[in-house]
């Protein structure tokens, strides 16, 4: 039983991490209808910023995390304003070509600047090791991930549902023309949303370096996982990807633990079954837009 709880805990942490990494993609894809396969590049960027700050400049880890968010968000704004903005009206396939090209450039550039070996972030001692809670082993680092990601999720959901900005964003997505007629600065709303999504990815990259590893190929290696989370969750809400990330995280970890021989099958098989059962994702709108 205690083992089961440990596995459940690990699965939740893994799922939360996937969610933070992929949520930005869910936003751009679901709300802005933009296929941004370059999403992982911003995650890697955040991760590398954090690594350089902590390892080379001696910035404390907890200070470096928000900086990673800010740096990735800034990179997102710049990229959106200069490049991605021109692609919102293009066909999806052109968006795919463009963003994959962007990832290729990012990967090679990272390789050039940072080298091709894996990078690790020096963690403070507080975050290392496990604590024992009624016989259940709880990894401190994973506990931190759950706390941070949980709070973020609440914040995102709150922003979208309750604030003025959330309302503007939803209006801008549903009908940009009417929205701008109502005095909403649609490009600005999009830019802000895009930047926020990139920032989240950057934070996810910084948090995930410890568990997933960070190397120049990060954006390509984990692209599949991001896409799985977004499609399985359905891209029209934020709760969908959240639940999907949790389900997949737990299923993946539990699957590997209980039936290690089938290890990698679980996540793919689960995805296929869910998507055939509900093509718009677990929590997607049933009516196609």
């Amino acid at each position: 039983m205690t083992n089961f709880l440990t596995i459940l805990f690990d699965g939740v942490a893994y799922g939360m991490l996937l969610f933070v990494l992929a949520s930005g993609l869910a936003v751009t894809l679901g709300l802005m209808n933009f296929v941004n396969l370059a999403h992982g590049a911003f995650a890697a960027f955040g991760g590398y910023v954090c690594a350089v700050l902590v390892n080379r400049s001696g910035v404390p880890f907890f200070v470096a995390l928000p900086l990673a968010f800010a740096a990735a968000a800034l990179a997102g704004v710049v990229a959106e304003r200069t490049l991605f903005r021109h692609l919102y009206r293009r066909s999806e396939l052109e968006q795919v070509l463009f963003t994959i090209g962007f990832v290729f450039m990012a990967v090679a550039a990272t390789d050039y600047v940072m080298g091709s070996s894996q990078v690790f972030i020096n963690l403070p001692d507080v975050l290392q090791g496990q604590i024992d809670l009624f016989g259940v082993g709880i990894g401190r680092y994973r506990l931190m991930i759950i706390v941070i990601c949980g709070l973020l999720t609440l914040a995102i959901q709150g922003t979208l549902a309750r604030t003025r900005f959330g309302a503007r964003l939803r209006a801008a997505v549903d009908d940009p023309r009417v929205a701008s007629g109502l005095g909403i600065n649609v490009p600005q709303v999009f830019a802000f949303t895009f930047a926020f999504g990139c920032g989240l990815a950057g934070l996810g990259g910084a948090l995930g370096a410890e568990i997933l590893g960070l190397d120049p190929y990060f954006p390509l290696k984990f692209l599949i996982y991001f896409l799985i989370v977004v499609t399985v969750g359905g891209s029209s809400t934020i709760t969908g990807p959240f639940m999907a990330a949790l389900v997949l995280g737990i299923a993946d970890v539990a699957g590997k633990y209980y039936v290690p021989k089938l290890g990698a099958f679980v996540i793919y098989a689960l995805m296929i079954v869910i998507l055939i059962w509900r093509p718009h994702g677990l929590f997607g709108r049933t009516v196609a837009r």
Binding site: L83, Q95, L97, F98, I100, G101, F104, M105, A108, D111
Partner: peptide, 17 residues
């Protein structure tokens, strides 16, 4: 041989732009 990915990526980006 090391950084060809960058240039091919650039070509994709330019094609779309």
């Amino acid at each position: 041989p090391q950084y060809w990915l960058f240039w091919i990526g650039l070509v994709f980006v330019v094609i779309v732009l």
